[in-house]
Amino acid sequence: MILKKLSLVLAVAVLTAGAQAQAPVPLQLELPKPLFAGTPRPISLPNLEAPRAGKRPDLMVPAGTANLSKGKAVTSSDSLPVIGELSYLTDGDKSGTDGTYVELGPTPQWVQIDLGAKAKVAAIALWHFHSQARVYHDVVVQVSDDKDFKTGVTTVYNNDDDNSSKLGKGKDLAYIENFEGRLLDAKGAAGRYVRLSSNGNTSDELNHYCEVEVHGALVK
């Protein structure tokens, strides 16, 4: 009888602890400082989203979520960037100054991060270029277990509204780059690889990345 009661208490304790472990917590992101040097031209965020007042809302992610992309291997459709290195995407430096971003050529280009193992991705934070107000065109972010992204592809974000990148028509909103980067809710998309595409920007035809963080947990 006593053994039965003890087992019940133990079971309740384990369940409670498990529930506490799965309770969502706010994702903590380290942000670089704003880089709009001097007086920028007056740009009043004419974006498709309502301009946000105050702090960015927290994105709730499962407890234990970690940055899985730090230091991970990066490949790209432009394998030899003229400026910067692909490794800059995952080196943890998102300051945006010269020497901290990689510049890919014109036309649609992608970068791909190999997380090393299959993961459940909770959030993806990306910084293209934030020392000038600009909008990157046709931003598409996908997760897959297939390194060629032919099967099992989950699209996390897509603002290519005319399918010019041939990755499907997207309904997400375009946005002006700033020091906060773009925080995407990946909703637990599973895969080993994360691929990000873009097609130039409002200032030039090139594609840039300061940093990409993939937050989640490896699937055991």
Binding site: P46, Q132, V135
Partner: peptide, 15 residues
């Protein structure tokens, strides 16, 4: 209306 962005010059964005 469908909205998108277009850059006139670096730093000068139009909707």
């Amino acid at each position: 209306y469908r909205e998108s962005y277009l850059g006139l010059r670096p730093g000068f964005i139009c909707t």
